[in-house]
Design a protein around this nucleic acid. Sequence first.
DNA 1: GCCGTTTTCGGCCCGACTGTTTTCAGTCG
Length: 574
Amino acid sequence: MPAHNADIAAIFDEIADLLELQQQNPFRIRAYRRAAQVARSQGRELADQVAAGRDLTALPGIGDDLAAKIAEIAATGRCRTLDALRKQVPPGLEELLHLPGLGPARVRQLRRELRITGPAQLKAAIESGRLRELRGFGPKLEARLGEALANPVTGHRMLRATAAEYARSLVAHLERVPGVKRVEVAGSFRRGRDTVGDLDLLVESDSGGPVVAAFTSYENIREVLAAGETRASIRLASGLQVDLRVVGKASFGAALHYFTGSKAHSVRLRRLAQRRGLKVNEYGVFRGARRIAGKTEESVYASLGLPWIAPELREDSGEFEAARRGALPRLVTREDLRGDLHAHTAATDGSASIEDMARAARRAGLEYLAIADHSRYLGAHRGLDADRLARQVVDIEALAGRIPGLTLLKAIEVDILEDGSLALPDDVLRQLDLVVGAVHSHFDLSERKQTARLLRALERPHFSVLAHPTARLIGERPPLNLDLERVIRGCAERGCFIELNSQPQRLDLDEAGCRLAAQHGVLVSIASDAHGCEDFALLDGGITQARRGWLEAGAVLNARPLKELRLLLQRTMH
DNA sequence: GCCGTTTTCGGCCCGACTGTTTTCAGTCG
């Protein structure tokens, strides 16, 4: 089985955990953690890069040793270093390491003094009262560990769109506190990740006390995890953890930068500063005791000779190198979008008429809209067959010119069947402006079969855009077993396009897929997949994801003017 | 284990909060 980047990352993270338990050189441990991060953020499969003979030591944080380990994992799916470590460390210790409040030092202490090597023994030690006799373990830690053992970590991440609702009301709550001048959501939310593990709120105020007090007395709190002068953490009833920091005006930019992260990006920035004899912390950039920057993020970057880097790019996955070369992308914005190539109506599972959807699209600032309702396929209710599609085409044509500033395009979201054929015949598809193809069944084929299925679909005479390419539903359904790079190459060869579906649960392509598409010159259709008039707002989420994937307007199909779009689509409809 | 406009060895990001201490180690972000 070929090793994917996520597999490589998991192996490096586990090596780091095990080395930590053995109290090895912390910088060696950090190197493995960094490598895991780098592997995860790669757009292209490392295994493919190895096969293509690429020198992996060109990647940040990857030297001769780690490059060799990546090659080993790519070739064998295993890593001898990890295999050896696993023999030296009892398997339960790693589980203990992931409990809140336990780090390597305490896990080693548990093993040394109580012979505890796993969760079950820890539980027994708590129940027998032996745990609290250990130096450094008191009643609070005991209670916290007992809790964690009783309720195994959900570790669940929340959809960004869901977290946004909590963020909105928390921000409004804090903005009402006297003395608060500014509130920003930082963290992975600001970086635009599709899911967030927690919310990080940053407040500008001269005194932290009242802000912390207001924060920790917010309504839906399950528990206050920590509360100091300038910092506090709460857990909401929903389980969402929210962290607060309060800083003064002179530090706001530095703090916003620091709490936006990512950690890898921040660490990299601090190292750059260090080499220049500067120190960066959340209060500013310092030369000795003198603050030389920090009021704005721009000032922080500028003090290091760098242009401001957009939050979506801050993953230490090439943005520093690009910034130094003056080659940062001009990321696509919502204003760049001229149309939307995937929307539904009440004819299938949408809620509005063609005309209402068209007017809503116009209100959302779009110039063209493709009506792409579902085709009928096995088991689907109300999908369009050839006759109903023909009638819808007539309806769409009847609206031509009736909605000022908006052009309707005739399309279909046609099912890709198990064998790669499409659910409607060629002579029906031919009458449309574009064909959007999608997988809605047979999600569990092998990688070989699934890849072949999609490649066959792309080869159909009428096929324009591959919709939600991996069919993932975040937190519900994993992505298809797919050689995505092979499929993207297929799109390039065939002149087809690939979709970034903006539904919050899909956001499919992901950021790595976006980078792959751009590398292969395949234009991305950022689509709302709207099922109602309000759904064009979802395009914002798609744009955020596209920005995380380094996409510029030139790489986005529906940023093209209508005339140009028509030419591109015609080539897919011969 | 990585890395270099202070280079091939000697460094490696930084601070707040907690719990348990009695001056601080460990954890966390």
